[in-house]
């Protein structure tokens, strides 16, 4: 479990990535990092107004943390590429999460524009993490384009519904060689465990932590679930069975089968 795994040329120990949106205060970030050991955080890019005396998120992110810049707000590939370049200028990080949404109700990712943006940014030397509606063919195209990982949604952003797209994500995990990071929809530890049991390389969680009564504790809880799910996956998840199989030895000395009325024979 302590084995490192590699994404975009970086060796990581933690399979848990955290989004920083909607946190009540950025002051929680150092504590979340300390208590979970996470190594990757996402941030978004916005105008900074002159009068603003708001907290600067960068004051709370230690230097050793990898910053993944999210292109949220982009409505097409060109805008995503533009945001990525600006973000990279600020952070010095080449890690970009491409999030392109042409829809505001479900924040549904535009897979087609995401492929375009991925091709462009890979050519320019970025490590690209595309957030997509789970679709195997899109994932294959992204892999071919040189994406660093695939980030299929478990459910729509902020819905806390868990891995509702399981049947669409499974083939991506099976067929794609680059890491698969399940992003969005993970609302509680059991969802995180499920994602890891399925064989996801990592997960990204934001809302479930940010709006929890105690974000630090929720991050810790989800971190435990990530670890538990990963260990179980590495050992091998057992297949489901239709009928019972005794886990205690049947009492062989109760020989009188005639009086046993439990059998379902008709």
């Amino acid at each position: 479990m302590d084995k490192e795994f590699e994404i975009a040329g970086k060796k990581l120990k933690s399979r848990f990535f955290i989004g920083t949106g909607k946190l009540p205060t950025y002051k929680l970030i150092p504590d979340i990092i300390k208590k979970t050991g996470i190594e990757v955080l996402t941030v978004a890019v916005r105008r900074i107004n002159p009068a603003s005396k708001v907290e600067n998120i960068m004051d709370y992110i230690p230097k050793n943390i990898i910053i993944m810049v999210n292109t949220s707000g982009a409505r097409n590939a060109d805008e995503a590429v533009k945001i990525a370049k600006i973000g990279s200028e600020i952070s010095g990080s080449k890690w970009i999460k491409i999030e392109i949404e042409a829809d505001t109700k479900y924040l549904a990712p535009d897979n087609e524009e995401t492929i375009k943006a991925t091709k462009k940014l890979v050519q320019e030397g970025f490590s690209v993490f595309p957030y997509i509606t789970p679709d195997l063919i899109t994932a294959k195209k992204l892999e071919k384009a040189g994406a660093a990982a695939i980030m299929p949604l478990g459910s729509f952003i902020g819905t806390n519904k868990g891995i509702t797209c399981e049947t669409l994500i499974k083939p991506i995990i099976q067929e794609i060689k680059i890491p698969v990071i399940i992003d969005a929809g993970i609302g509680r530890p059991s969802h995180a465990a499920k994602a890891m049991e399925m064989g996801a390389s990592a997960i990204l969680v934001n809302t479930a932590i940010a709006i929890a009564k105690d974000p630090v504790k929720m991050a810790v809880a989800i971190d435990m679930a990530v670890k538990a799910g990963r260990i179980a996956y590495e050992i091998g998840i057992l297949a489901e069975r239709e009928f019972a199989e005794a886990s205690s030895p049947l009492t062989g000395f109760l020989k009188d089968k005639k009086n046993d009325k439990r059998n379902n024979k008709k």
């Binding site: 989004g19 920083t20 949106g21 909607k22 946190l23 950025y26 996402t42 941030v43 978004a44 890019v45 916005r46 105008r47 900074i48 002159p50 600067n56 998120i57 960068m58 910053i67 810049v69 999210n70 949220s72 600006i86 973000g87 600020i90 952070s91 952003i157 992003d183 969005a184 990204l204 934001n206 809302t207 940010a210």
Partner: peptide, 8 residues
């Protein structure tokens, strides 16, 4: 003038 804010 652009900077970072919290985001997922």
């Amino acid at each position: 003038i652009i900077g970072f804010v919290g985001g997922g």
